[in-house]
Write a protein that binds this DNA or RNA. Structure first.
Lengths: 115, 115
DNA sequence: TTGACATATTCCGATATAGGAATATGATAG
DNA sequence: CTATCATATTCCTATATCGGAATATGTCAA
């Protein structure tokens, strides 16, 4: 009766803490499953399964090399999150806003100095 | 045997599509439960429950006025997400990066003009 | 070719979650 | 004070999710 979503989207994929940790590692450089197992001290199936979720939503891609599989981040897939966050930036005076303000100041100065 | 997290954090809270929609409305202006019910055409308990989750993680706050309850966004609570996203910005050339580059240019110019 | 290695997959049990329906709570109007 | 309105809460069911354990798959090395 209750209709629940089956496919993970990017937002729910990063809802899982372990997956965020995996992402934080893979954004540094591509790594194999066992390297991640060693770093986090999780079971190999746990790592593989979470990578599977991230792969399904395209946050990571896979490169096979012999019996190893190197996983890496695909940052573009995370842009929807960044774009969604935009709506809040005006409230908290983000770095972007600060730069934006700075930019406006510069422009005003520029216009002034033309007179 | 399996230890799963019980408390929602901000990241998992925005993993739910309906909750993101609620947030998108409430960021515009504070609203009551029934206003949200009318906008989305969801059941009242559905709206109240999702607001409950958002309230628990402090993404929204509640203001009681008679029998109404006005909900509003607390943008600061979403900053951890924005900050977490920072690690990817260098890859996709965000607006912030563009402004940052611009800022660097300006600074260089400024230093130059001092000589 | 066979054994060891790297990784994926399957099966299972415990818990979490979303939504519906019904009901409870609390406040106001009349 | 009582009926109604606004909202929360409880109970239930279906499904999703995570992790462990065991096993399957595929590849290399000796």
């Amino acid at each position: 009766m209750s209709r629940l979503k089956t496919t993970h989207d990017v937002f729910s994929a990063i809802g899982e803490p372990k997956r965020r940790l995996l992402i934080e590692q893979l954004v540094i450089k591509e790594m194999t499953v066992n390297e991640l197992v060693d770093i986090f001290d999780w079971s190999q199936p746990t790592v593989s399964k979470h990578l599977g979720v991230l792969k399904k939503v395209k946050i990571v891609s896979e490169r096979k090399e012999g019996r190893f599989r190197y996983y890496r981040i695909q940052p573009d897939e995370l842009r929807p999150i960044q774009e969604w966050m935009h709506q809040f930036e005006k409230y908290w005076g983000s770095t972007m806003d600060q730069l934006d303000n700075y930019l406006n100041q510069i422009q005003v100065k520029g216009i002034d100095s033309e007179h």
